[in-house]
Design a protein around this nucleic acid. Structure first.
Lengths: 202, 202
DNA sequence: CCGATTACTGTATAAATACCCACCATGCCT
DNA sequence: AGGCATGGTGGGTATTTATACAGTAATCGG
């Protein structure tokens, strides 16, 4: 669970959410200050930082009105879209979420928990193109030949999974790419999830 | 009724609406220009003025990202899945709807109105496999090279659209398939819609 | 008593952003 | 032939906005 917000922080978060609902765009620091009577925009700034640190919002740095609500409630019919996964962070960390797509994870089976943007054409023969969104079911279990999201060190990759004893092969679906061999006794391999579908937007 | 928007204006409005829904904040002139390939932010500015003049949006002058959508068009969050299209029936006829998928058409841009199950591998080089679901935006207008849902007589097909004068080519994305040539003076060709994305479920 | 966190005031600045001007080409209406 | 909307390029400027830095004061756990 996220750290609890202070009453003041909750109040500010509520106000921002209300603003977004009513005006369609998030407020600036100056607008927040005006609404709460702060005489310095820095008061708003530090509240925003606190809210971002606690995961209640995401700040897009350098952008005017770059405040996104982390959409804590009302999930179920929205899937987070994961773009680039920052080194060392859990996949679903707020910083990795680019946007939320209005679709139900239950449209896939097993259920999709998130969408991952695929980079490169290593899976082209499986009909997965550069930029496609892979629907992922969160599970550490994979069977032969399934498409998995795997983490090797700081890299997150999408490949076909093949296992023989303590050796795992991660195979691309493109003859130009080499199969990655992993010895489980020497390297750590984390299966983040299973590909359960593809979404492409033009 | 507000004055009708030109296709270009509608396209831009759709994109803005989509942006707001997905990112939570409206775009800047520069972002619009980047998305549409304008080399001057003024192109976006004048489109916004046109949209504002026609009442499609409201511009808050002097504010960063001060674009508000007048018409909040709360469309449904379910898309019909069209399987086989019965001869002679309109695509969206109830008899053609296999199921309703819990996803928002606004996840695509322009908006998707329905999903069509693609049969065969004629579009395999565009990454569309047998059984994939094509997200379709309903419109009779297509431009060179776009993927369209076309109706020729009783057949509904998915192909790339190319036009030269009164002749239209419907090209497969698979060398094993022949291009279909249509002379608009001799045969009727109906463009049912535009492919705006792909959904694959494993 | 110390450090950390909260909750602000006040000032400053670089970058993001809205918005102005001049101009061009096309098509449509009268 | 002329006016007007559309759909642009190219460049410029004033304003908005995010965000850094320097403080003050209060609260809380150890």
């Amino acid at each position: 669970m996220p750290p609890t917000l202070t009453p003041r922080q909750q109040q500010i978060l509520d106000w921002i959410a209300e603003r977004v609902r009513r005006q369609g765009s998030p407020p600036t620091r100056v607008e927040i200050s005006a609404a709460f009577g702060f005489s310095s925009p820095n008061a708003a700034e530090s509240h925003l930082r606190a809210l971002a640190r606690k995961g209640a919002i995401v700040l897009d740095s350098g952008r005017a009105r770059g405040i996104r609500l982390s959409e804590s409630g009302a999930s179920g019919d929205r899937l987070p879209l994961i773009g680039r996964v920052a080194a060392g962070s859990p996949i679903l960390a707020a910083e990795n979420v680019e946007e939320e797509l209005g679709m139900n994870g239950q449209s896939f089976s097993p259920q999709a928990h998130y969408l991952l943007r695929v980079r490169g054409d290593s899976m082209i023969e499986a009909g997965i193109l550069d930029g496609d969104l892979l629907a992922v079911h969160r599970t550490p279990e994979a069977r032969q030949g399934q498409i998995v999201v795997a983490r090797l060190g700081e890299e997150v990759t999408v490949k076909r999974f093949h296992r023989r004893g303590r050796k795992v092969q991660l195979r691309a679906a493109n003859p130009e790419y080499q199969t990655i061999e992993v010895d489980l006794d020497r390297q750590e391999l984390i299966i983040e999830g299973l590909g359960v579908g593809v979404l492409r937007r033009w």
